[in-house]
Simulated assay, not measured.
Amino acid sequence: MRLGGAVLKRAAALLLLAATSATAQVPPPTTATQSTFRWTGTLSQGGLIVGTAPSGTRTLTLDGKPIALAPDGRFLAGFDRDAGPQAMLAATLAGGLVLRQSLTITPRSWDISRLSTLPKYPVPEAEFTRIRPGELAQIKAAREISAASDGWQQAFAWPVTGRISTLFGSQRIYRNGEAGSYHSGVDVAREIGAVVRAPADGVVILAADHPFTLEGNLLMINHGMGLNSAFLHLSRIDVKVGDRVIKGQPVGAVGMSGRATGPHLHWSLRWNAAKLDPVLVAGEMR
């Protein structure tokens, strides 16, 4: 009986060891979650961030306004030239829980451009008043086009390189001291005919068939997620509405159509209604 009991005890011990070893080889399942916002970019007036929302986010807002959320949880958020010192991100999760993140937006100072030889209106004011509403309607309609593109995920490149002649955000004072709206993009001085290239993948949403009073030959590209580029004063446009373009593809040429004092490219960027500084998005010119 003693021998039999010892054998039974040893057998039980071996079974316990085997069961323990088998359990140790299958670790318990784990779930990776992100309970906070993450982002890269510039939190300043004219800046843009690319972020990732908390895991399980169903809807996302910035200062109470809905913003697009990619399937992988990434999003864009841009801050206008006149953005206030604070912004609020809010993510609503599947169960109704709302996670908020306050953002501190760095203020900037702006240059004043005095264009004493340039009138505020490039044509007689009465004619400008008659023509301009139709042009603005075309621009507004183009910005409202929803075009699927992954260009917003790319590192943006300068569409043309050269001397920056006017910075984003500068205030323009025209002939007779008349103040204009602030400069919504960056001017790069180049010779007429210099090739303009797409700064990122996108879809053409406007390719003017005639020069606009201010913008001249105007081209607009949607990069997805509410981000779009506009190229002003072109001498020619080489693409048409609906075309898909890839980063680096020629899309037009530098000119001085519309209101311009010399040949240059005006490149502006918008995220939804926020006007952005291309220098902060594209980085140092190379």
Rank of each mutant, 00 (worst) to 15 (best):
G151K: 14
F156C: 08
L76V: 14
S229A: 13
N176I: 15
A200H: 15
G283C: 06
R270L: 05
D63H: 09
H223I: 05
L16D: 04
G224L: 09
D243I: 06
G41F: 07
A273R: 12
K120Q: 12
T36Y: 04
A24T: 10
I192N: 15
T117S: 12
V239R: 08
E191G: 09
G242Y: 11
G73Y: 15
A12W: 07
T161K: 02
V203P: 01
D238E: 13
L3P: 02
K120P: 15
N176V: 08
D243W: 01
R2H: 00
I205Y: 06
L62S: 02
R38N: 11
A141I: 00
R143A: 11
R143N: 12
P85Y: 06
E144D: 10
L76C: 14
P54K: 02
A142M: 00
P85W: 03
N228F: 14
F75I: 12
T92M: 12
T30L: 07
T92C: 08
G185K: 05
Y182E: 11
G226Q: 06
V254Y: 11
A87F: 00
P71D: 10
P159D: 12
E135C: 01
G162Q: 00
R114N: 00
A179R: 07
T161C: 00
S165G: 10
V281S: 13
N222V: 12
E125W: 01
P124R: 09
V241W: 02
T161A: 01
L3T: 07
K275S: 07
A208Q: 03
R100I: 01
R236Q: 12
V254F: 07
S116R: 07
Q86R: 15
A126P: 05
P54F: 02
N176A: 14
S257G: 11
I49T: 08
I221R: 10
L265H: 08
L48K: 15
H210W: 10
K275H: 09
